[in-house]
Design a binder for these strands. Structure first.
Length: 606
RNA sequence: GCCCUUGUAGCUCAGUGGUAGAGCACUCCCUUGGUAAGGGAGAGGUCACGAGUUCAAAUCUCGUCAAGGGCUCCA
């Protein structure tokens, strides 16, 4: 859904939008046929080059297709080349694809004749009518279709084999490991070229690449996988993000908490996490006579803080937030840059409220979510509302009230949403929100979950107006989700070209000669005193070199300082986003930069 | 955890059994230069780690760790 007009992201704007549309497979019946057929061509090519390869499944994906094979030897990159060549030949033979309806017995007879055990297993799961598609005279595959009528409808210059990967038969890790070949296919070579261009664009934005190039963070072998080191530049950005986040929460009547990183393991027994998620937790440590646990979640701490004293209904809602660093054991092989790590900081908050406050509180969270995300230019959202699953706890009327509260809040907010029936957690319904980045990818960050479980387990209560003790409703919510992951998404969204307010180094002063170094140093001091992140290029390089370095490091503002500027008390300013801004008095620069910081602008005002 | 690929200087990478290489970055010298790379010299490596084969291993074999592409998983 579109909540507001898409932001004119400077990065994407600068690159220029393309006019070549790349429909997803599910949006294009033509591409669906092409990709379906292409996977058959792939399978036929593989079997002609590797007679021992057994076929399994070969579906389309949103951008292409893949096929899983059981082959004694794994395929290599070199094999892909040969396979692609063979596919080209098959396409060139203009082979017809024909749909044939067969009886189960006929299908079984044909499969046995070819000794394809996986096909037999697939057949067992099929319901009539059983169809297969032939490709040329000899080759066929069980398939529901649809396909192109003839390989002449496939453009041999519009497909590519992309990678080889392992995959489990039926996606089950206890079953055979197969070799999967991924490919992409389009109607025209232009589309293929555009697809490749977009892939390169995604690569150019890769936060791991940019994190290294811009010296933002690292992950150190000696320390362990999935543990993030924030370098000064990254840390500076994180502080700016956190400062904004904190202020936004105070503005919205939250209070902030700090809680420990480890605690007695009994907390996780009480919360139930140990039963369900112990294999995702770091192991416990023995300290004195007690077992301690590195925290995988913050909620029990906030719950204990709530329970620390007797609460009145008059105090509710209580809104507590914490940038809480948690540790979760991720299996080796699943870590991915900042996106999937073992130690990360949740922008966690818990709202303790009365049942009839749910609607207002959720709306409040939605507003805060929009405020925070839009500040980082994420303005397009996709929203999912997940309702009660089969296996769950809590009374029907509480679930109804809670679910109605979520719906009502979304409707008051005017946000369109999809319903994921039965997709909620066992302890309550939830709203998940995905954000769209500058190149159209969706990322799930924010989540708002109602919880009837923890208040029960920790026996939370408040004193109601009639003096009775009642159970509060608990709302968990995170807006960034994980600060590390959000940072990664943000890096990719901006492609490292951060808005001025967020850039770790906002302005670099480039002295043309040594004679103006003193002026540059003084200017740097003035800027820093005003809260502007300024540095002086002390390399002694020639101007052209300093500008090249500054541009490569994506510094938003470069100020050339020579004899003229020193004499006039000015700078010659060059903006990464707006180009040459000409000569500017120092006072004007400082005022403009301060305004940009205060208003969180992407570039200098006016 | 599973399959495949990879690991050489701070970075990007070359080097296929016989003395460890390049570009950029870094240090020094010359150059005082006005909007995307001025010139020269120098320093820098336990070739991820451990074991093995060999007269000899960055190179071959095995193991460990980590990274990358996937699979599985993700409160």
């Amino acid at each position: 859904m579109t909540v507001a007009p898409p932001s004119a992201s400077p990065a994407s704007e600068a690159r220029g939008a393309t006019t070549i549309a790349l429909p997803r497979t599910s949006e294009s019946p033509e591409l669906l046929r092409i990709r379906h057929s292409m996977s058959h061509v792939l399978a036929m090519a593989v079997q002609s080059l590797f007679p021992k390869a057994q076929v399994t499944i070969g579906p389309w994906t949103e951008t292409g297709f893949y096929y899983d094979f059981d082959n004694p030897d794994p395929f290599t990159e070199a094999d892909l080349k040969a396979i692609k060549k063979e596919m080209g030949k098959i396409i060139g033979r203009r082979l017809p694809l024909e749909r044939i309806v067969v009886s189960r017995e006929e299908a079984e007879r044909r499969i046995r004749a070819q000794n394809e055990p996986y096909k037999l297993e697939i057949l067992a799961g099929l319901v009539e009518p059983i169809t297969l598609y032939t490709l040329g005279d000899g080759w066929w595959d069980l398939c529901a279709g649809p396909h192109v009528g003839n390989t002449s409808e496939l453009n041999p210059k519009a497909f590519e084999l992309e990678s080889v990967a392992g995959a489990y038969w039926r996606g089950d890790e206890t079953k055979a490991q197969l070799q999967r070949i991924y490919g992409t296919a389009w109607e025209t070579p232009d589309q293929l070229a555009e697809y490749k261009r977009r892939k390169e664009e995604a690569l150019r934005r890769d936060h791991r690449r940019l994190g290294k190039d811009l010296d933002l963070f690292s992950i150190e072998d000696e320390a362990g996988a999935g543990l993030v080191f924030w370098h000064p530049r990254g840390a500076r950005m994180r502080l700016l993000i956190e400062d904004f986040w904190r202020q936004a929460h105070f503005d919205d009547s939250y209070e902030l908490l700090y809680t420990p990183h480890v605690a007695d393991i009994s907390l996780w027994k009480t919360s139930g996490h140990l039963d369900f998620y112990s294999e995702s937790m770091f192991g416990p440590m023995q300290v004195d006579e007690r077992q301690y646990q590195l925290k995988p979640m913050n909620c029990p701490f906030h719950v204990l803080t709530y329970a620390n004293t007797l609460r009145s209904y008059r105090e509710l809602p209580i809104r507590w937030a914490e940038l809480g660093t948690v540790y979760r054991y991720e299996r080796p092989g699943v870590m991915h840059g900042l996106m999937r790590v073992r130690g990360f900081t949740q922008d966690d908050a818990h709202v303790f409220c009365l049942p009839d406050q749910i609607g207002d509180e959720i709306l409040r969270v939605l507003n805060l979510t929009e405020r925070i995300l839009s500040t980082f230019d994420f303005r397009n959202y996709e929203i999912n509302l997940s309702t009660r699953p089969e296996k769950s706890i809590g009374d029907d009327d509480v679930w109804d009230l809670a679910t109605r509260g979520l719906v009502e809040a979304l409707e008051r907010k005017g946000w369109a949403y999809k319903i994921d029936e039965g997709g909620g957690a066992f302890y309550g319904p939830k709203i998940d929100l995905k954000i769209e980045d500058a190149i159209g990818r969706m990322w799930q960050c924010s989540t708002i979950q109602l919880d009837f479980n923890l208040p029960e387990r920790f026996d939370l209560h408040y004193v109601a107006a009639d003096g009775s003790r009642q159970r509060p409703i608990m709302i968990h919510r995170a807006i960034f989700g994980s600060l590390e992951r959000f940072f990664g998404i943000m890096i990719e969204n901006y492609a490292g070209d951060f808005p001025l307010w967020l850039a770790p180094e906002q302005i670099r002063l480039l002295p043309v000669t040594d004679e103006v170094r003193a002026y540059a140093d003084d200017l740097q001091a003035q800027l820093r005193a005003a809260g502007v992140r300024a540095t002086v290029d002390s390399s002694g390089d020639r101007l052209g070199k300093m500008i090249r370095q500054g541009e490569q490091q994506k510094i938003p503002l470069l100020a050339v300082i020579g004899a003229q500027e020193a004499a006039a008390g000015s700078v010659s300013l060059r903006s990464r986003r707006d180009g040459d801004l000409g000569s500017l008095p120092v006072a004007t620069l400082i005022t403009a930069a301060c305004t940009a910081n205060a208003q969180r602008l992407a570039t200098l005002p006016q």
